[in-house]
């Protein structure tokens, strides 16, 4: 489906094949192409005059993630991701960690959506073989492919190097050492960049731990409580007007907070 979208997109943005007969025609055909793009791309261009665009009940709500089960991961993959995120943000005296906060569920659901296919990224290359750090992702692999292939490579690596044990069966020290090696790229998986897998899980763990709970992670706003983030409030004039006074309001998520009562 995503490949189809891409080829449709490519066809849409392909330059016109017909050679313009003279300069004025060239501009005209360019205009015609532009108009066609606007009308066919689905992003309907709209001229707003006299009235403000508003309709009653107009909202674009997020469908809340319902925890339970896996939509992308296999049970084995999920157990490994659980084990990794549990080392990245472990539960401690400050509160629950990434695993308890549903970060694996967050990653699982994200991988099934547009992020998982990098639907909104340019993915046609060319990809630099030795990119600068500022050049971002330089790979044709989508997050779905990174997780599927990366976790398989990690499983094979563990099987070969830890007497047949899987990542989840390693001791805490072994896990940390292996993860540190993956972060540096020192650990060599067979056919996959260990660093790419580490970066994917590391980035997504932070996102899941601090994103709104509606997306499946950050359960009970644990991440926000840990760092004192106020949540989806957007007016702090009262706070600004009262410097050096403690901020006492609890965090609030898109679905509210416990004081709102039962939904």
């Amino acid at each position: 489906m995503h490949t189809d979208d891409r080829s449709a997109m490519r066809a849409k943005f392909a330059p016109p094949t017909e050679t313009p007969r003279h300069a004025s025609m060239s501009r005209r055909s360019l205009l015609a192409t532009a108009a066609l793009l606007i009308t066919t791309s689905g992003a309907a261009a709209k001229v707003v005059t006299k009235v403000l665009p508003w309709r009653p009940n107009e909202v674009y709500p997020v469908t809340p993630v319902t925890p339970g089960g896996w939509l992308f991961f296999t049970a084995e993959e999920a157990a490994v991701v659980d084990a990794i995120v549990d080392r990245l943000i472990p539960a401690d005296e400050l509160g629950p960690g990434a695993k308890e906060s549903g970060v694996t569920t967050f990653i699982d659901r994200q991988l099934t959506g547009p992020y998982g296919g990098h639907d909104w990224l340019y993915m046609q290359g060319p990809f630099a073989t030795n990119p600068l750090p500022t050049q971002g992702l330089q790979s044709p692999l989508t997050p779905r492919q990174q997780y599927r292939q990366g976790l398989a490579a990690l499983a094979a690596y563990c099987k070969a190097n830890y007497n047949g044990r899987g990542f989840a069966d390693l001791s805490g020290d072994e896990k940390d050492k292996l993860l540190a090696g993956m972060e540096k790229g020192d650990v060599k998986f067979d056919g996959f960049s260990s660093r790419m897998l580490f970066n994917a899980v590391h980035g997504n763990t932070m996102e899941g731990f601090f994103a709104d709970p509606i997306y499946g992670g950050n359960k009970d706003m644990a991440g926000w409580k840990l760092i004192g983030f106020p949540g989806v409030r957007y007016d702090f004039r009262d706070v600004i007007d009262n410097p050096n006074k403690p901020y006492t309001l609890p965090p609030v998520s898109m679905q509210g907070q416990p004081a709102w009562g039962v939904r």
Partner: peptide, 18 residues
Amino acid sequence: APTMPSFGYRLSDEQIAA
């Protein structure tokens, strides 16, 4: 013409009553 957004999707009947 200030606009107030819809909260019907976000608040339950009990919450709106409150």
